[in-house]
Design a protein around this nucleic acid. Structure first.
Lengths: 342, 342
DNA sequence: ATGAAAGCGCTAACAG
DNA sequence: CTGTTAGCGCTTTCAT
């Protein structure tokens, strides 16, 4: 059974494809096509089970009604949730989303971006890898709708949606300090990307404000591509080396997960021996025992805002950079009970 | 800056678009185009930064090199991981994937499937909703490459990839029995879908084989669309009503998560007062305290197999139904320590 | 060894 | 009120 086209309908009804196209695109009124004919065309389309070929339409109109979403890793709960909200918000506006994961690899990201461009995406929502600046740059200079999410490039004028990373980290570390933890370590990604730098800055400033000396050995930087097992080992080694550490701030979810595994395997007690706060929330942090205090990102708001910005750009044809910063939420749980209480 | 097309290259070099197309598609040899010309065309294409328009190519060739993946909920870790493996396996074969979530809603699934068809996907990997049989049926009868995953329709001949749900459930419940738990409850989805029916059958048969009477009140069925909060409450009520229950088998990950929350809020101890096994693995189950024994699905194998089946169909044009059943893994953890040991 | 031309399915300016 | 026609960018048959 071959796909039936607008031509088949035209033939069946005995009119031209133009007329059919007009009716099908709701321009019957505008083009003053008789109601009788309109009905007949509509009825025939339904009867033949007509499905417009979006590829052809895309070629003709230059609009595919598809958005490209480039994330770091679709299996990471943060990005998986983001994807879900992006998908449903885009759907409301009649757009579909094409997802891809970069694994934070520049080459992969670049080729993914090319691929999406070849496929004529109408807009791009991108969690950029560190070296993607040039590619994003060219997208912007070609006036394509782009919104960066989670991170951005400081010296590149683009729209972006991100959480206030500095404030989140300050709040998270502040919570540990408030509860009496004094020797607080930081476990972060070995990356110069803005979101991580800001979280680290939040950590540093929070300590300084509380007159706690910042010890650079208390900062552990894990390369992004380190395996899960090695990450667990690295954190174990770190904790064994700096016995004095009584609190830990993780700058992202998967580091927190690995950290919990390390702490458990060392047999240390949370919060008795070590207080813990992690950036990003998850089932494990919420329901694990003990539950883990977190800096939670309002993922729904981030995803919806990113889509809304793109849709606005598409509608208005104005690409002026919009910078949206959303407030994170500090959620206090068992992992930061008062230190003195222990 | 407008996108440059094959025509621009032809003009620049001073040949026809045909020649350019041949060279670009690696048919230079076959068409015996001179090496000089070939080089010149290639060089010009690179210099002008030519990017083929895949929409146009798709219209012409009828192949979009895109697969549609319809999952239940992209934010569920099982599906998020599946998506990731599907994506990377498809990428190896030069295909891109378009993801959509149905939320197990028939209408949404139907319209998503239409949408993907309009966009001329070359193949479909589908986690079907209960009422999607007709749509899948028509896909199959139109000789489109389709693979169902996680579940399938018993009276519809299609390719599918699924785990051995019966065996997994038997093993999971068997583990509880082996450890001395006698009054085992089942928390499942109120659904007639095959994967859930098989898991329930595994539960029943496992009890029967061990001469334990199956009490229908010990089976709690939660509607798919019940909110998380209400699910937690329902499980709490269930546990309060049937005090005798000393073991619980959850047929899917999100029910397990809700169940842990219920058990925690009732203050019951795992495994002291209640043993727990859940279908599907996650960070929470692996790292929570206590850790939870699970029936884990080899997600990577499932995703890769599904893609391979589609790619084979595409290559061979043979759509014969392939039925792949993969072995689940029983992972024993703290939540099923010997009952007598407590 | 290379090019002309048709056509994939759809839209829209222009004609009438 | 409806039809003719050109064309989106690409592939491919047929001709030369």
């Amino acid at each position: 059974m071959k796909n039936i086209s607008i031509k088949d309908i035209a033939q069946e009804v005995g009119v031209s494809t133009t007329t059919v196209s007009f009716v099908l695109n709701g321009k019957a009124k505008e083009k003053r096509i008789s109601d009788d004919l309109k009905e007949k065309i509509l009825e025939t389309a339904t009867r033949l089970n007509y499905r417009p070929n979006q590829v052809a339409r895309g070629l003709r109109t230059g609009q595919t009604h598809t958005l490209g979403l480039i994330v770091e890793d679709i299996s990471n709960p943060f990005f998986a949730n983001l994807a879900r909200f992006v998908e449903s918000e885009a759907d409301k506006a009649g757009y579909t989303v094409m997802f891809c994961s970069t694994e934070n690899n520049d080459e992969k990201a670049t080729s993914l971006l090319y691929m999406l461009r070849h496929r004529q995406m109408d807009g791009f929502i991108i969690i950029p890898t560190p070296g993607l600046k040039k590619e994003v740059q060219s997208l912007v200079s070609e006036q394509k709708p782009v919104v960066l999410v989670d991170r951005y490039f400081q010296d590149l004028e683009t729209s972006y949606v991100t959480v206030d990373n500095f404030k989140g980290a300050t709040g998270g570390v502040g919570l540990l300090i408030k509860k009496g933890y004094k020797k607080i370590g930081l476990v972060t990604v070995d990356s110069m990307q803005i979101q991580m730098m800001e979280r680290e800055r939040g950590y540093t400033v929070s300590l300084e404000k509380n007159k706690i000396k910042v010890e650079s050995e208390f900062i552990l930087r894990i390369p992004y591509d380190m395996s899960y097992e090695n990450t667990v080992k690295a954190i174990e080694g770190f904790l064994k080396k700096y016995i004095g550490i009584d609190g830990l701030f993780f700058t992202t979810n998967y580091l927190g997960v690995a950290g919990l595994e390390s702490i458990r395997s060392l047999g240390r007690k949370i919060p008795g021996e070590i207080g813990v706060v992690c950036f990003d929330d998850s089932d494990l942090f919420r329901l694990g025992s003990p539950s883990i205090s977190v800096v939670a990102q309002p993922i729904r708001a981030i995803g919806e805002k990113a889509v809304d910005l793109i849709i606005d750009m598409l509608a208005s044809k104005k690409m002026d950079p919009q910078k949206v910063v959303i407030e994170p939420m500090i959620i206090e749980r068992e992992s930061t009970s008062n230190k003195v209480m222990q």
